[in-house]
């Protein structure tokens, strides 16, 4: 893909704070594109605690993580933001000046944006696959160890060891079994979280001797130059070697700061320092709101992120519409704002 999307603002992270920033920017006629590494909006709220009740959102005595996300999505609907899921912002390049900022933002999926401002609402960083803590696994990654199946052909006629007990592990076991030379599924216990029908289908394949199931855990990797030849596994019968040339570990996600560290922003203990007037970083035109930022007295609360987004939007407006007279308006009384919300 070579298309370049021109926009006012790119918001990095579609968690609650990134979503509400769309609202505050939208009221000021500023169009946003949101980028998130997850396949859905909501960030931690949707990924870590969709069903957990949250008690400290003003006006909501109780709302679940998913409930809050659903409401925010409804609230920003009038501004029809563009979402780019399953994408991680890989590179950020400064094109403009401090007075008239302009940035080129590129995702790992190859989407390029040219944007006047960037709002980093990346929370605890990007969700990335958990890496089994075995020595030198990095040497094998993307050569013979993969954390996702991007191309099934990569696994054709291979001996594939899949590790895990959830839906990803079971789904890929079933999908790859017909094309792989052999699939071995390894899990720490003979009980699976995955959907029962997939578990049954897997057990059928094992009964028909079309694949193998091992109860055990990864202990080490064997191979050369990134090419895996076997995985040693801790089982109840001691440590065994499982011959394989592809490994797919599925251990869920963890949050890592990721490429944000390379964007030229000041960092303090993996957080981005901002001022408390505009929530702008050391790079004019780049803002940081929500859990990713830090300033004296910072509280990692969703409500703080909402406030930060509102204030950042005011400064973004000055960059996007430098000649516009700024008039502060309320949604309760301004016909102009109500029109934008589709209620007037």
């Amino acid at each position: 893909m070579t298309e370049t999307i021109k926009t006012d603002v790119v918001i990095v992270g579609a968690g609650p704070v990134g979503l509400f920033a769309v609202f505050e920017l939208g009221l000021l006629d500023i169009k946003s594109h949101l980028i998130d590494i997850l396949p859905k909006p909501g960030g931690q709220c949707a990924e870590l605690y969709p069903e957990k009740p949250i008690y400290d959102i003003p006006g909501f005595p109780m709302v679940t993580g998913q409930g809050l996300v659903d409401n925010l999505m409804k609230q920003i609907e009038p501004f029809s933001p563009s979402f780019h899921y399953n994408e991680m912002v890989e590179a950020l390049e400064v094109l403009g000046t401090p007075e008239a900022p302009l940035f080129r933002v590129r995702t790992d999926g190859g989407i390029t944006f040219e944007t006047k401002c960037v709002v980093v609402a990346a929370g605890g960083g990007s969700f990335q696959p958990k890496r089994p803590p075995v020595p030198s696994i990095e040497d094998y990654e993307n050569k013979s160890v993969f954390y996702a199946v991007r191309k099934m052909e990569e696994f054709r006629d291979r001996t594939v060891l899949i590790v895990g007990g959830g839906d990803s592990a079971l789904d890929w076991t079933l999908n790859l079994a017909p094309i792989a030379k052999r699939v071995v599924l390894m899990h720490r216990r003979d009980e699976f979280r995955a959907a029962p029908h997939s578990v049954n289908a897997m057990r059928d394949l094992v009964a028909q001797k079309k694949m193998d199931l091992v109860i055990g855990q990864i202990a080490g990797l064997k191979g050369d130059n990134g090419q895996l030849s076997a995985v040693s596994a801790k089982t109840n019968d001691g440590v065994i070697d499982i011959a394989c040339d592809r490994l797919l570990p599925f251990f869920g996600l963890t949050m890592k700061l990721g490429p944000i560290a390379d964007w030229g922003l000041n960092l303090h203990e993996q957080l981005v320092p901002v001022d408390t007037e505009k929530f702008e970083t050391n790079v004019p035109g780049i803002f940081a709101i929500g859990d990713i930022n830090t300033y004296p007295g910072k509280l990692k609360l969703i409500l703080s992120g909402f406030h930060e987004g509102a204030l950042a939007a005011q400064k973004v407006q000055r960059y996007v519409y430098p000649d516009k007279k700024v008039i502060f308006q309320y949604t309760t009384s301004s016909t102009n704002l109500q029109k934008k919300l589709g209620v007037a």
Binding site: P133, H187, F251
Partner: peptide
């Protein structure tokens, strides 16, 4: 128990 599936060793 289910979440322990995401832990190592």
């Amino acid at each position: 128990e289910d979440m322990l599936d995401f832990a190592f060793d």
